[in-house]
Design a protein around this nucleic acid. Structure first.
Length: 299
DNA sequence: AGTTGTCAAGCTAGT
DNA sequence: ACTAGCTTGACAACT
């Protein structure tokens, strides 16, 4: 079981999200942004390694405008070596990587243009992981998409578009249950039709579910991950007290996390902690996991 | 130097 | 019809 946090490390003080305005695009800006972002990514991964975090989500902003028509800069070629070095480090240290394109990626959109842009964005994400030489256990996770007033049709459109994706995207894609539209049950149905692995999001499941317990849910998603896909990835967060339903907590709720570990006892998966203070809470989670393991198994 | 409005992209729910 | 929120930082124009 690996534990990680997404995209940002607040402690070491560099960013992998450096970008610029579309209007000020130039190859020089691209070169500068990507080179800084990759250097920071490497720093974070090294820091993670010495702090026990073997799971990390790489930011979608690592190469700004990568899938935009304005991008004429041959970033793949220019940074091939850096990507390879980072990838080697990841593999040597047995680390797990995910990426999570944001809300603009909607492959089931009724608009072909939106779907096409989304697919380009997915290809960019997969390209990053390919350049690092990572196998198909490194995943790109998305939500199912919009509903457009007809869930059944929306699901059919997802399946149809999924089947037309390139092999390199299909080998990395994973879908995640969301908090308003597509529940775990919906994702499992799509997985049956396509073979796409399902990432279980604990907080979303609390907002939208069909009565499955945590243990039920984990056992169900486990079946959607084949050996070459690696162990299931899980998104964990808890509800911000007093915040809107589904709002991620600022800091880890230790009691809730312990409860989750207890409910999932005996199952193997990697946990992405979607918590605002990032590595700070992840450290606590790591400690709690260790304590939990020692009280239930031999240490 | 510090502050603040704005940024490529979509969708839903609430006013 | 319009906009906040997702989730949130960082750029860039302005004091």
């Amino acid at each position: 079981m690996k534990i990680g946090y997404p995209c940002i490390n607040r402690k070491i003080g560099c960013t992998t999200n450096s970008t610029f305005r579309l209007g000020s695009y130039s190859d020089e800006r691209m070169q500068k942004a990507v080179s800084g972002n990759l250097a920071c990514l490497f720093d974070i991964l090294k820091w993670n390694c010495s702090n026990g975090f073997q799971f990390f989500r790489i930011s979608s902003d690592i190469v700004p405008f990568a899938s935009h028509p304005v991008c004429s800069y041959p970033w793949e070629k220019k940074f091939k070596k850096q990507f390879m070095e980072i990838g080697s480090f990841i593999k040597q240290n047995n680390m797990r990587i995910s990426m999570h394109p944001d809300q603009f990626v909607v492959i089931n959109s009724p608009s072909n243009e939106i779907a096409e842009r989304s697919i380009k964005e997915l290809e960019y994400h997969c390209r990053v992981l390919d350049l690092m030489g990572l196998d198909s256990s490194a995943r790109v996770q998305i939500h199912v998409g919009g509903m457009y007033g007809d869930k059944e049709k929306a699901v059919l459109r997802f399946v149809d578009r999924y089947n037309k994706l390139s092999k390199s995207v299909r080998k990395r894609l994973a879908i995640e249950n969301d908090d308003r539209l597509f529940s775990l049950k919906d994702c499992l149905e799509i997985s049956r039709k396509t073979g796409v692995p399902v990432i279980f999001d604990v907080l979303h499941h609390r907002c939208l579910n069909n009565g499955e317990t945590i243990k039920d849910a984990l056992q169900l998603v486990q079946k959607t991950w084949k050996k070459k896909d690696g162990v299931p990835m899980i998104d964990y967060s808890s509800q911000e007290k007093g915040g809107r339903k589904g709002k991620h907590t600022e800091h880890i709720d230790q009691k809730d996390f312990k409860k989750f570990l207890d409910q999932s006892k005996g199952l193997d998966f990697d946990i992405m902690l979607e918590i605002k203070d990032k590595e700070k809470s992840a450290k606590i989670a790591l400690l709690l996991l260790h304590k939990f393991a020692c009280s239930n198994y031999d240490c």
